[in-house]
């Protein structure tokens, strides 16, 4: 069984700051990590490998520095790592990104694909589902339990008010949430061999894509403006009984033409 895991390297923070002038993410001084949900995806693939036997390949699209995330995955015990890197990929939105990842999946071959639910920097939760659409694969999102059966998987999907259990034919794509498992640590054995392993690099030509389909050019999303919400004014404080307070609030709202 070939398992592909799509991962993303993200800044190690939940509060990504945006440069007010350029509207882009400020990454300076913030260490990079494997996106947390993607670690759950790696763990699940490794767990299945240990239980049923499989080859686990991690794939990421990113600049050359994203190699660090792949080395970390190798140090957790995955078998192979692929870096999809090309200047033409820069500035991609989720559509252009998922197209590149889907093409890579076609080239690499797969029986099962894992991705994290969403990345902590973009928070879109779109890339996983879009890969499945490009590949015309069944997909299950918000996966919190996976059981591998013959030719299919039984998957439990978290809902707001409960869960759904689905039986899905493989190949399929599953997006993982943190409730799925506890990602393992890197280990000394694999840490000391991970830099000796070759990381396969694939660019636009290897994937057979056109420049118009990828990167900023291939992205239907157009960002008009990115900004950080300005600080709120302090407000006024009234120390009065409740009925007087209600009157004051109403007057203020009327004054703002809100009621």
């Amino acid at each position: 069984m070939n398992i592909l895991v799509f991962i993303k390297q993200v800044p190690d923070t939940n509060e990504v700051r945006i440069d007010p002038k350029t509207g882009t993410l400020i990454r300076d001084g913030v260490p990079s990590i494997i996106n947390p949900d993607d670690k759950n995806a790696i763990e699940e693939a490794l767990r299945i490998k240990e239980e049923h036997g499989a080859k686990v390949t991690v794939v990421t699209m990113g600049p050359p520095q994203a190699e660090k995330a792949l080395r970390e995955a190798l140090a957790m015990g995955v078998d192979e790592a692929v870096l999809l890197t090309d200047r033409a990929f820069a500035g991609a939105d989720t559509w252009a990104t998922s197209l590149v990842l889907a093409k890579a999946a076609e080239k690499l071959g797969y029986d099962l694909i894992f991705a994290g639910r969403q990345a902590i920097d973009g928070d879109t939760a779109q890339v996983g589902p879009e890969i499945a659409e490009h590949l015309n694969l069944p997909q299950v999102t918000y996966v919190e339990k996976v059981e591998v059966l013959d030719g299919k998987v039984r998957v439990r999907r978290a809902m707001e008010d409960g869960y759904e259990t689905l039986l899905v034919k493989t190949p399929c794509l599953l997006t993982c949430i943190k409730e799925l498992n506890n990602p393992r640590y890197m280990n000394i054995y694999d840490i000391f061999t991970c830099y000796a392993k070759e990381i396969k690099k694939m660019g636009i030509d290897d994937l057979g894509l056109d420049k118009e389909e990828v990167g900023l050019v291939g992205s239907p999303t157009k960002v008009k403006k990115s900004f950080t919400k300005g600080p709120k004014a302090q407000g006024e404080k009234f120390d009065v009984p409740p009925h007087e307070a209600a009157t004051i609030v109403c007057e203020k709202l009327k004054g703002m033409h809100l009621i």
Partner: peptide, 14 residues
């Protein structure tokens, strides 16, 4: 080394 750096990251988390 790169390996020692990864080991340090792992050890700190552990």
């Amino acid at each position: 080394t790169r390996e020692q750096q990864l080991a340090k990251e792992m050890l700190e988390k552990f």
